[in-house]
């Protein structure tokens, strides 16, 4: 019976191989084993969304994913998303709207918001709220965050025209 597993996966475009304990979740793997501390562990039971990262292109709760199950997977964290420039405009909007205060929720919030930009370019304000409803923020009261996402969507649409 194995409690430690060799996994090889791609994290932010780089191939990594590590020996992980079966009980390691993806966020501890990223933070403690790879030193990628942008992904946060809040509640560690699926409720707060601070741990939102992409696995194989879709957002997940990193605290509810076994690192050992990720052999062959492709993981993108806030570090990778940020470096890629995919959400540079959204990040600017977060700053402009003051949508981050303590910043604890911000990486997860940006990962979830990026999902709206990719999959729901026509999202209404209500749909933005609905999509972000699994990401808790204890500081901002959410209005500024929804504003930032909404203005990014609008700017992108105007840019296309």
């Amino acid at each position: 019976m194995s409690t430690r597993h060799d996994i090889t996966l791609t994290v932010n475009g780089e191939r990594v191989t590590r020996l992980v304990e079966a009980r390691r979740h993806l966020i501890d793997f990223l933070r403690l084993d790879l030193g990628l501390t942008g992904s946060h562990a809040g509640c560690e039971h699926g409720v707060c969304g601070a741990c939102t990262v992409r696995v194989d292109g879709e957002i997940v709760r990193g605290c509810l994913v076994l690192a050992a199950s990720l052999d062959g997977a492709e993981v993108t964290t806030i570090e990778g998303l940020s470096d890629s420039g995919e959400v540079a405009d959204l990040q600017d909007a977060f700053v402009a709207r003051n949508a981050a205060q303590c910043g604890f929720c911000t990486p997860g919030m940006v990962m979830a918001a990026a999902d709206i930009l990719r999959h729901h370019p026509d999202a209404t304000r209500a749909e933005i709220r609905e999509h972000l409803s699994g990401n808790y923020c204890r500081c901002t009261g959410y209005q500024a965050i929804v504003d930032a996402v909404e203005s990014t969507l609008t700017a992108r649409k105007e840019g296309v025209r």
Partner: peptide, 12 residues
Amino acid sequence: VPYIAHPAIRNR
């Protein structure tokens, strides 16, 4: 489906 949890949870 939209009533079940949140997008990140519905992906798994």
